[in-house]
Design a protein around this nucleic acid. Structure first.
Lengths: 209, 209
DNA sequence: CCTACCGATCGGTAGG
DNA sequence: CCTACCGATCGGTAGG
């Protein structure tokens, strides 16, 4: 049992290493950075090739098309968030704690996995069918799950009586504001940012008398 | 005095009418809709011309370049928000009321002037110099003013002790989430949306015991 | 406002 | 992984 766990652990480590070290991994990372900076449509395969250090034509030995890169980024990110919300959903915590956890997970992903998460959030419109519909469905389902957790909190009297989809919309978009934090020169540190964001979203701006 | 007011009112009405009815006005409105839907880079002048109902070459009798359209949209929106924040800044209201007013103004603009506001918020990166730097500066100054109002509220004990720039970032991005509301089929009405958003931002998600 | 057209650049392929 | 190249499309102009 122990040996098995060790083995599968080192296997997945090797897999991660391979992905990180591989040329395809490099292409994906450079593409994320460029799609975030200039947008998917404004990034040319020649720009990308230059960043990777090869000719444009050589990119096609590692990827099938420009759109396949975007697909890889978007669905990677979608999987990360889907896996997390399922774990939180099935936990036995109070609703307010579930929301706190979800919120912090979003914040950390936006800090640590910035380029990919940002691209997935802002550039998915450029996905081709059938990926576009698939992605939109996943997105809709994710938000429904999130809203359900909030509804549950309202029912249990832990959360204020608000429109749950509106709360989800605010939370998700507020988190994407971390983009401005990344850009700003006089950054507060990541921990302070996280705690400030959580405090504002959970308890609001107004000071209680 | 009364006659003067009447006259300038009808003059500006005529001006608005002219702008709305003119071909350039039409081009700007169609461009806003398409830039929002597909992004600036992915919208071609041929697409735009078709939406307007003329040939691509004919667009250039009304506008100088594709980028000039984006400039018109972005700076129009910037002016609207700058004018408003200056009015609010110099009013003698409590800080929490100023913030409430600012927030509601953003929400209403995002509902009533959706295409332009959205494009200005998401596509300004494609502005050319010197417009790009100019726009970024205006944006930075706007956020500083907004943060100052929050700082003022913290000093007066009306607002919780939070990092003001983080609060600004949350508010501005949360409001841009109205995009999801526009997209959604089962919309709550605009008034409910506004009140829910304000309640969540000002008083938070957690129900007070 | 149109027809006709420009050079530049795009994503992608053939062949080695 | 490169050289050489494809057809398509881009923003924009000339001339009427």
């Amino acid at each position: 049992m122990y040996a098995l766990k060790q083995r599968s652990l080192s296997l997945s480590m090797a897999k991660l290493q391979r992905k990180k070290a591989s040329k395809k991994g490099l292409i994906l990372r450079k593409a994320s950075a460029m799609f975030r900076e200039k947008g998917f449509a404004a990034t040319s395969m020649r720009d990308l090739a230059e960043a990777v250090g090869i000719e444009a034509a050589s990119l096609y030995n590692h990827i099938r098309s420009k759109n396949e890169i975007l697909e890889a980024i978007c669905f990677d990110v979608a999987n990360i968030f889907n896996t997390n919300i399922e774990t939180i959903e099935s936990s036995n915590q109070k609703s307010i704690v579930k929301i706190d956890n979800l919120l912090r997970f979003h914040i950390r992903q936006m800090i640590e996995n910035y380029e990919e998460v940002y691209v997935s959030d802002r550039e998915w419109k450029h996905l081709d069918e059938p990926y576009l519909s698939n992605f939109q469905t996943q997105r809709r389902n994710y938000r429904k799950k999130f809203a359900s957790i909030i509804e549950e909190g309202i029912a249990k009297n832990e959360i204020r009586k608000i429109d749950a989809p509106t709360a989800v919309l605010i939370i998700l978009h507020a988190v994407s504001g971390i983009e401005s934090w990344h850009r700003s020169k006089a950054k507060i540190n990541a921990e302070e940012l996280e705690n400030n964001m959580v405090m504002i979203m959970i308890d609001g701006l107004r000071k209680q008398p």
